[in-house]
């Protein structure tokens, strides 16, 4: 097997496995940059996947055909944002422990979605959707030698949206007034309050954006890879996205790079058996790599990852 064949095997798989992670990690970035820990990303992805599949099935029934999955992505974004309100209300308004609230969100997402699936379909998983988000050849670009077949043949548009989103979020968070306010309530809420920024409102926006992005991430995974929804459709992708966010040091492009890297580790753990050099490496090393690397990054062995200063603390006016 030649070098190019290996690349042709690994690169497309990496990009398409990374897309849901990119979306979700960017979502987590909004929440955590505003000072609210979001362990609930996993649950938000579950809700996104559930909404994506269910809406697609219904829209197909109404005759929307190939447009159904695309419209469902919008539905998943909206429902994801609404569902994240639970976390926002509990952890911002009711000053609940943000980690506990996130844990509860994960429980609730799986329980509620599987409960509804069982109630609607009478079994533990949904039917398969007829129209997934399809793989397309990008015109013109696919004709570029070498790069074309690797990056632009049989690809998902959602992967490119994910990559674009990373750069847009980077711009928004670091070069707009909104981004500055978001970061300021996460670093020093009292100073932000003094400057007239509504701390809790910014945090609500941060958490709801995380719900929207994670909902998108879950739906993209369900509508490209899974094709149906069950309790085990989303198993750990949300936590891996959280890891990508931390490994990327709470920076949009860092999170993007980390998500691509974790996507690579995942794709190697799947395709590794057919790659000569990796065939003898036990799969387990690739499976645990993202998590071990994140721990090492936190401990400062791979560049220090520092969280926003005010993360995890509810804001009380007048407290110091």
């Amino acid at each position: 097997m030649g070098f190019f064949d290996i690349l042709a095997l690994v690169i497309p798989a990496t990009i398409f496995l990374a897309a849901p992670l990119i979306f979700t990690a960017l979502g987590g970035l909004f929440s955590e940059r505003s000072g609210v820990v979001n362990i609930g990303l996993e649950g938000l992805m579950v809700i996104g996947a559930f909404t994506g599949i269910l809406t697609t099935l219904y829209l197909e029934g109404f005759g929307f055909g190939v447009w159904s999955p695309w419209l469902s992505l919008i539905a998943a974004v909206v429902i994801g944002a609404l569902f994240s309100l639970l976390h926002a209300v509990a952890s911002i308004t009711l000053k609940a422990d943000q980690i506990v609230s996130g844990v509860a969100l994960n429980f609730l997402a799986v329980g509620l979605s599987v409960f509804l699936v069982r109630n609607i379909f009478g079994k533990g998983q949904t039917d398969y959707v007829a129209h997934r988000i399809s793989r397309e050849n990008i015109p013109v670009l696919q004709d570029i030698p070498i790069i074309g077949p690797l990056f632009f043949e049989r690809v998902y548009y959602t992967s490119f949206i994910a990559i674009a989103a990373a750069f847009i979020v980077w711009y928004v968070v670091f070069y707009t007034p909104f981004g500055l306010r978001l970061r300021s309530v996460g670093e020093h809420p009292m100073a932000a309050d003094t400057m007239g920024i509504k701390v809790n409102r910014m945090r609500y926006i941060g958490v709801m954006l995380s719900g929207a992005f994670a909902g998108m991430g879950g739906a993209v995974f369900a509508l490209t890879t899974a094709g149906n929804f069950a309790g085990n459709t989303i198993v750990g992708q949300g936590f891996m996205a959280l890891a990508a966010l931390i490994f990327g040091k709470w920076h949009p492009l860092g999170a993007f790079g980390a998500a691509i890297f974790f996507g690579l580790a995942q794709s190697l753990s799947i395709t590794g058996q057919s790659i000569p050099l990796l065939a003898n490496v036990p799969q387990v090393y690739l499976l645990i790599a993202p998590y071990v690397l994140t721990i090492l990054a936190l401990a400062g062995f791979v560049g220090k990852a520092e969280a926003p200063k005010a993360i995890g603390k509810p804001y009380e006016k007048g407290s110091r």
Partner: peptide, 19 residues
């Protein structure tokens, strides 16, 4: 559906956390 129990447990955590 038995998952109702999971929902109830999740809600209990929410309510305890939002004490």
């Amino acid at each position: 559906p038995p998952e109702l129990v999971d929902i109830v447990i999740a809600l209990i955590i929410f309510f305890v956390a939002s004490s």
